[in-house]
Amino acid sequence: GKMTGIVKWFNADKGFGFITPDDGSKDVFVHFSAIQNDGYKSLDEGQKVSFTIESGAKGPAAGNVTSL
């Protein structure tokens, strides 16, 4: 299901970062391709987001990332 969290950091040049889930679980990798907006796909440190957990090739990653 949907989770919420805070963006820990995001490197716009490399197109990835990490989200710290509100439930205290392990930080989740986020790739820019998972960001659900029409414009420039980037996130800001400290931004609140909702997301799902998808299993990627390198382990769990955030999917369906939407800013709240």
Rank of each mutant, 00 (worst) to 15 (best):
G24S: 07
T4I: 11
F16H: 06
I35K: 02
F18L: 04
E54R: 05
K41P: 11
E45Y: 14
G5Q: 00
G17N: 00
G59M: 06
I53R: 08
V65E: 01
I35E: 02
T66M: 11
K14M: 11
F16Y: 15
F18C: 03
I6F: 12
A57L: 13
M3I: 13
D27F: 04
S67E: 12
F16W: 15
I6P: 01
V65P: 01
G59P: 07
Q47G: 07
D38N: 12
K26T: 14
G46L: 05
Q36C: 06
G63A: 15
G63T: 15
V30N: 00
V28F: 04
G1N: 10
G5P: 00
G24M: 08
D13E: 14
D13Q: 14
D38F: 10
A61D: 04
L68W: 05
G15S: 03
S55F: 11
F10Y: 12
G39D: 08
N11F: 09
G5W: 01
V49R: 00
A34S: 12
A12W: 11
I53N: 04
Q36Y: 07
K14V: 09
G46M: 05
K8W: 03
G24N: 09
K26A: 14
F16I: 11
K58M: 13
I19P: 00
E54N: 08
W9I: 04
N37F: 13
F16G: 02
G17C: 01
V30R: 00
F51P: 00
G56D: 14
A34Q: 10
G46F: 06
D23K: 06
G56M: 11
I19E: 00
L68R: 06
K48I: 10
D13F: 15
A34G: 07
L43R: 01
W9S: 04
F29S: 02
K8G: 03
T4H: 09
A12K: 15
A12C: 07
V49G: 00
T4Q: 08
Q36N: 12
K14L: 12
D13H: 14
D22H: 09
G46D: 04
A57Q: 14
S25C: 06
V30F: 14
S25N: 10
T52L: 08
P21Q: 04
G15M: 04
F18K: 04
V49N: 00
G5M: 00
I6K: 12
E54C: 05
G39W: 06
S50L: 10
S25L: 07
D23Q: 07
D44K: 15
D22F: 09
A61H: 15
T52N: 09
L43H: 02
G15R: 06
K2Q: 14
D13N: 13
F51D: 00
I53D: 02
K58D: 10
K8C: 06
S50E: 13
P21E: 02
Q36H: 10
K48L: 10
M3V: 12
V30D: 00
S67D: 11
N64C: 06
S33P: 03
W9T: 03
F16P: 00
I6H: 11
D23H: 08
H31N: 03
G46S: 05
D22Y: 09
V28W: 03
S55N: 15
E54P: 02
G1D: 15
T20D: 03
I19F: 02
A62L: 02
G59I: 05
D22I: 08
T66I: 13
G59C: 04
Y40L: 11
D38L: 11
P21R: 04
Y40E: 13
T66D: 07
K48D: 04
V28M: 06
Q47M: 13
K8A: 08
G5N: 00
F18P: 00
D38P: 13
S42D: 08
P60S: 08
S33A: 08
A57W: 13
K14Q: 10
I35W: 07
P60T: 13
A57S: 13
N11E: 04
A62Q: 01
F16A: 02
P60I: 14
A62H: 01
S50Q: 11
T52A: 05
N11H: 10
D44M: 14
S67K: 14
P60V: 13
T20R: 12
K2S: 14
K14W: 10
K58Y: 15
G5R: 00
D38K: 12
V49A: 02
Q36W: 08
F29G: 01
K2I: 15
K2M: 15
K41Q: 10
I35D: 02
Q36D: 13
I6N: 06
T20L: 12
K58L: 14
G5L: 01
H31D: 03
T4V: 11
T52H: 08
V30W: 02
F18R: 03
E45V: 14
V49H: 01
G17E: 00
Q47N: 08
S50C: 07
S25F: 08
G17L: 01
E45C: 08
P60M: 13
N64L: 10
G59H: 07
K41S: 09
M3A: 09
V49D: 00
V7K: 00
P60R: 12
A62G: 03
F51Y: 11
N37H: 14
H31C: 04
S55G: 12
P21W: 04
D27Q: 07
I53M: 12
D22G: 05
S55C: 07
G24A: 08
F29I: 03
K58E: 09
K8M: 04
S33W: 07
G1Y: 09
I6Q: 09
D13S: 14
F16M: 07
I35Y: 05
F10H: 01
T4D: 04
I6C: 08
K41M: 08
G63W: 11
G39A: 09
G15C: 03
K2D: 08
A57G: 11
N11M: 06
A57M: 14
G1S: 09
G56I: 05
I53Q: 05
S25W: 06
I19A: 01
V28R: 02
G1K: 05
N11A: 10
L68I: 14
F18E: 03
E54L: 11
Y40C: 09
V49K: 00
P21I: 05
G15D: 01
V30Y: 04
G59D: 04
V65H: 01
K14S: 07
T66K: 12
A34H: 06
K41L: 09
K14G: 05
S67F: 14
W9N: 03
V30G: 01
S33D: 04
Q36S: 12
N37M: 15
A12L: 11
K48A: 12
V28T: 03
D27E: 11
N37I: 15
D13T: 15
S25D: 09
L68N: 10
F32S: 09
G17S: 01
K14P: 02
G39I: 09
A12Q: 13
Q47T: 13
L68K: 06
F29P: 03
D27N: 09
G15V: 02
G24L: 07
L43C: 03
S42E: 08
D44I: 14
T66P: 01
W9L: 04
P60A: 10
V7G: 01
T4Y: 11
K26V: 13
A34V: 11
A34E: 07
N64Y: 10
H31E: 03
I6G: 03
K14A: 11
V7E: 00
L68E: 10
L43N: 01
T66Q: 14
T20F: 06
D13Y: 15
